[in-house]
Amino acid sequence: MLHEPASKVGTDKAADKKARLGVIMFIAYTLVYSGFVVIGLTNPELMGLQLISGQNLAIIYGFGLIVLAIVMGFIYNYFCTKMEDKMNKTNL
């Protein structure tokens, strides 16, 4: 009795699919994040390389990681919502 959620959560038939999508997106982001760390560790001078309109790699990659997290969040939400609507017609 004590181990029920604070609010009732319906059965989610899309849970497995959403979890799989989450893992894939997590791996994708982790690879991009790792790229940033690896450049920092192996060739930090590269971070000062001028790329687009006078901005260096450190700024573009750093801002890029922040913006990518937000964009991927929206993409994830879009597909999860779609899966839920399709698979849980009577639930949620």
Partner: peptide
């Protein structure tokens, strides 16, 4: 901020389902 990716993609929903 990158840490939130772990929270969103791996932890948010399953944890909500489990916890009280």
């Amino acid at each position: 901020l990158a840490g939130w990716v772990v929270a969103l993609f791996l932890v948010a929903e399953p944890l909500k389902k489990l916890g009280k």
